[in-house]
Design a protein around this nucleic acid. Structure first.
Length: 279
DNA sequence: ATCCAGGCAGATG
DNA sequence: CATCTGCATGGA
């Protein structure tokens, strides 16, 4: 059945999402925590897990059309009070330029497997390429929902070998992806609920292809563990003067000691400001 | 064209 | 424990 017919049968729910001082759709989507979105003629198209939404900018916010509003309510972390978080990190001395520039970023509550795949692909890679590789994998393996593809199931991901992921453009990360998918299939996707952040990190890093930085991104964006500070090349640049020649993993520990449970928010706000302004 | 990108694994001091 | 190197791919 052609897509245009299927999509006519997709039940879409509509709701207005107001912009606030502490929520910006643009910043939340474009800060680098998520890759399956597109801006087309001023409309954001977002796929997450098996769901999809479009956002059209209106006066004071966005009209959202979604396959499941409840899903996106949780996904966008609207139940967390970001005003409190913002004032807490300001009390703790976060530079106000980063707060005023990036405070509209919410930490998304993304699907675990999708987050793992996304950030394994992200390592040593450019964002446009990351998006393209993920999109090819979803188009090839994800269920056609009519107008978009769901993120593939573990079964589907595990059905492909290293060569296939190379064809998707994953490069040397291909063997990581096929290996992780097969381990998820054979052992099941672990439940992290009862684990401490440290235990969860250790478990994630036991997968070949997941190091400290990718693990911390998964903890933050896939498990909403905010006591992590993903430390990449940009964060190293930001703190290069304050902590010269300190390796990433050590710097991550230092920054978590400073920011505690607010580390993840601070990291995203600083990261986004640095990447946008390049100052 | 050379460099580099939301790093990682494996090998070597 | 710290440092070094190779890695696939393609955009700048």
């Amino acid at each position: 059945m052609p897509n245009e017919f299927r999509s006519a049968f997709l039940i879409l729910e509509k709701i207005f999402i107001p912009a606030t001082d502490t929520f910006s759709l643009k910043e939340t989507l474009e800060c680098g925590q998520v890759f399956r979105y597109q801006l087309v003629d001023g409309v954001y198209h977002l796929s997450a897990g098996e769901h999809h939404a479009t956002f059209t900018e209106k006066e004071g916010g966005w009209d959202m059309e979604a396959t499941n509003i409840k899903f996106f309510q949780k996904y966008f972390d609207f139940d967390t009070n970001y005003d409190i978080i913002q004032s807490k990190v300001q009390d703790k001395g976060l530079v106000s330029s980063a707060v005023s520039f990036a405070r509209g970023i919410h930490i998304l509550r993304q699907d675990l497997v999708e987050t793992v795949f996304s950030f394994v692909i992200s390592q040593n890679n450019h964002i446009p390429r990351i998006k393209a590789i993920i999109e090819r994998i979803c188009t090839a393996l994800g269920e056609d929902k009519g107008g978009y593809h769901a993120f593939p199931t573990v079964e589907a991901l595990a059905s492909k070998d290293t060569d296939w992921y190379k064809e998707m453009g994953a490069g040397y990360r291909a063997e990581y992806l096929s290996g992780i998918a097969k381990r998820f299939r054979d052992e099941g996707v672990p439940s992290f609920d009862t684990l401490s952040t440290e235990e969860a990190r250790k478990l994630l890093m036991s997968y070949k292809g997941i190091g400290r930085k990718v693990a911390d991104c998964v903890l933050l964006f896939g498990l909403k563990r905010t006591d992590v500070f993903p430390t990449d090349t940009w964060i190293l640049k930001i703190f290069g003067e304050e902590y010269p020649d300190v390796p990433a993993e050590k710097l991550a520990k230092i920054l978590v000691e400073r920011w505690g449970e607010y580390s993840g928010y601070v990291q995203q706000w600083l990261f986004y400001e640095k990447r946008e302004k390049k100052v």
